[in-house]
Nucleic acid binder design. Structure first.
Lengths: 115, 115
DNA sequence: ATTATTACTTACTAAAAAGTAGAACATATA
DNA sequence: TATATGTTCTACTTTTTAGTAAGTAATAAT
């Protein structure tokens, strides 16, 4: 296990970036994480993880437009790179494959995903 | 993120134990890992990870019968605990759910797994 | 006997992931 | 102007995961 890969929390955040699309900025990501997992996260943990993901080349980001809302500091909008998407996909395929081989999980329903 | 959970390598090994069933002993697990991932692992890494998984309550094990093969030291056979299976299942469900929400991945094919 | 092979065990180290703390900034409202 | 709100940033610490090293054991083959 040498290559740069994804931790669990990292993978979740990466996916949330993909899900949130144009709304993928740290605060929103943190909120979404909490609502999807019922677990608390500190915003700092999210920021440092997003940084790590960027350094690893899985994410890029750019500053969004200034908003005229209260607290309207400009948001940094994240998006998944091609590399990030590829790694995510590989990770998914590998897991689907394993689950499928484990009798306790194999519903037979995942088979045709590998059509 | 406080609760005891699974690292990536741990999750893979846990699943391999489930897949290998009666053949789930460290050496075989290491071989299977290499064949399924095309990555090398050291047997020591596998042993220490299996230990960790046992301490966390995800696995149990017992010594198998002595075999009359060359190098026939008794094997320690691992199996997944109910707790291990539950955690594995939760992890799977959560991931399936996220993948399904990410447009780049959503084939629509995973939907009905949550029927 | 000696060596090769299949295995386990344990204590340790290294690396990576996760989380914390504290500061800063922009805007709106009171 | 002072305060609340929504937000980013980064250096640092802690915790967890992954991996190494070195030894032990049992058996078969030479």
């Amino acid at each position: 296990m040498k290559e740069t890969k994804l931790g669990d929390f990292e993978e979740t955040l990466l996916l949330l970036v993909g899900i949130l699309d144009k709304e993928a900025y740290a605060f929103k990501i943190a909120e979404e994480f909490e609502s999807q997992t019922q677990r608390a996260v500190s915003i700092g943990a999210v920021h440092s993880t997003l940084n790590r993901l960027s350094e690893k080349g899985f994410l890029t980001s750019e500053m969004g437009e200034a908003t005229a809302e209260r607290g309207g500091r400009r948001k940094r909008i994240y998006s998944i790179t091609a590399h990030g998407e590829r790694v995510l996909k590989e990770s998914r395929d590998f897991k689907l494959s394993l689950w499928n081989q484990y009798p306790a999980f194999a519903t037979g329903k995942l088979n045709f995903i590998f059509e």
